[in-house]
Design a protein around this nucleic acid. Structure first.
Lengths: 231, 231
DNA sequence: AAAACGAATTGATATTTATCAAATATGATC
DNA sequence: GATCATATTTGATAAATATCAATTCGTTTT
């Protein structure tokens, strides 16, 4: 991991979190002066569960997976971290520990921002605080939906949900590089990797998706949504 | 549901949320003047999923269940709402809809507080905002733990977790009234009610818990924790 | 190109969990 | 206390999912 300062400042960063628009010039400058820029190669851990939450993380390019290291070494993938979104686990405000790990999937370019300063600004800037609360809330809402999906749907419904997530929220297109291995898809949908293979094959045979090498294409989105709803 | 004003004001309410201590006199008064007090009988719905989040809710006495109405009428119980804790779903800051329902289990005495005013104070009082963020964060952390438990553990581990939750967090003692039906225990642990019965019986036969009528006693907490860890 | 490695796939089987139907218990109501 | 409704329990069975072992495939290394 190299650590050159590649961006001049946060103001010129076009991947900045939208909430940063609510900061004053001096607040933004404070953030800017206390950031640390880094590059990660695929597979490298950017944030380790259990380590102190000394910083909030922003990605300017690349994709990463957020995951919880659960019981007996089994991981649970929370979701894909994307540029322009805040990465700051709930532990920051509870026990000052990162509540999950984050690992780069593609090459990642990211900034670590001082959490102390972040916290200070949250206290003093009400609009920013509200915006942060909105961010926390929408993540929480997403987690709730996720939980209901995982708990109430069968494998095909869960896998359909994850394919829709990748298509709608991550790549914003119907054809995309499958950046997760079958194992990882399993860690996201609570399935054994072999079952991922089987259900995916079912989807292919039904003409819902096609996959050549590592590329996935959603052929029949209607049907995929239906599969998600059937559960 | 009757609606007498039984408490004079928030200041004298000894069940108030701890964050309220951070409010100024005038802020607390504002809250107080815009609250609406209500009593609920067991089974009555206090907050309905999907309805507008016009208010935050505080219970001064009683217990309620928070639950998501999921796919095909199946419920998922998030947890037990207790006096002195804020009830305000993440939807408030996202789509202005209650993201889950809340129903009284015992008789409940509660106050509805204007969300507009709550929101206004969050913006203007940084300490209060931070305290609210801490609250959101700890709920979020709890949800993450919950999700890992539900996804990675087998039935006995999940049920052990829920019994520990009731004992440690809800009743704060090892013997308590089982306020949830087997059906509801199932909605909390993602199990069929018949399976709840069976596993509970296993626990009894192993001398881990005892239950006479609707009273549950944890006899061997060590072992129950072990069961939770085994998963 | 051959070898080596890990990921993906497949089939067979075991385990876990849900469902169904029936019986029993519990509690509320008259 | 009899009756009704509902919750709990039980046993039998079915469905869903995981595991194991073997093979194939794709990449990288030699």
């Amino acid at each position: 991991m190299s650590n050159l300062k590649l961006l001049n400042n946060c103001e010129s960063c076009n991947q900045g979190w939208k909430s940063f628009k609510l900061l004053t010039k001096s607040e933004l400058q404070l953030i800017n002066e206390n950031r640390y820029e880094a590059m990660f190669k695929p597979g490298e851990i950017m944030l380790k569960q259990g380590s102190p939450t000394s910083s909030a993380l922003f990605m300017s390019t690349g994709m990463a997976k957020s995951y919880i290291e659960g019981n007996k070494g089994k991981n649970f993938i929370i979701g894909i971290a994307l540029p322009g979104k805040l990465i700051l686990g709930p532990g920051a405000y509870v026990d000052s520990r990162n509540s999950y790990s984050v690992a780069a999937i593609t090459p990642v370019h990211a900034c670590f921002l001082s959490f102390d300063i972040f916290r200070h600004i949250v206290r003093s800037n009400g609009e920013f605080a509200e915006s942060f609360i909105e961010d926390l809330s929408s993540k929480s809402l997403w987690t709730h939906n996720r939980m209901v999906s995982l708990v109430q749907k069968r494998m095909s419904g869960r896998l359909a949900d994850t394919l829709l997530y990748l298509s709608d929220d991550v790549f914003e297109r119907d054809e995309f590089e499958m950046i997760l291995s079958r194992q990882e898809l399993g860690e996201m949908t609570s399935m054994a990797k072999e079952c991922v293979v089987r259900i995916l094959k079912e989807f292919e045979e039904a003409g819902v998706v096609s996959s050549e090498s590592s590329r996935i294409k959603i052929l029949d989105k209607e049907r995929l949504i239906e599969l998600s709803e059937i559960g």
